[in-house]
Amino acid sequence: MSKPKCWQDVPPATIAWGASALDVETGLWRSMRPVLDQNKCISCLKCWLQCPDSSIKTSEEGRVCGINMFFCKGCGVCAQVCPVNAISMHQEADFTNEKREHGEDPGRVAGHVK
């Protein structure tokens, strides 16, 4: 979705299009990062159920298969509710050189806030 550039482009009636927040990279907020150990994970789905940001990825068979770093805010609820300690929290600073998953320019979301 591209943002309106002038008043004529603004959708009518205060409308926002459904699910358009999927463009918003809330992962930029993160200071701690959850890391999933697939070998320990028993796919009980507790983390998936309790993640406030719907960032636990599941496979077609309904198994936990990763964490979406584009959205994960690093709250640590997943690590806390995991019964087998398959998720551990790490400093986000340790991952600074990594490419972002979604590849979106964060400036597009936060550009007006200088």
Binding site: A21, T26, C51, D53, S54, F71
Partner: peptide, 17 residues
């Protein structure tokens, strides 16, 4: 899910859950 990721609730807020 009816409520997508990309919302701006505080990290760890219970409401979106």
């Amino acid at each position: 899910n009816p409520l997508t990721e990309g919302h701006r609730m505080c990290p760890g807020c219970g409401a979106p859950t």
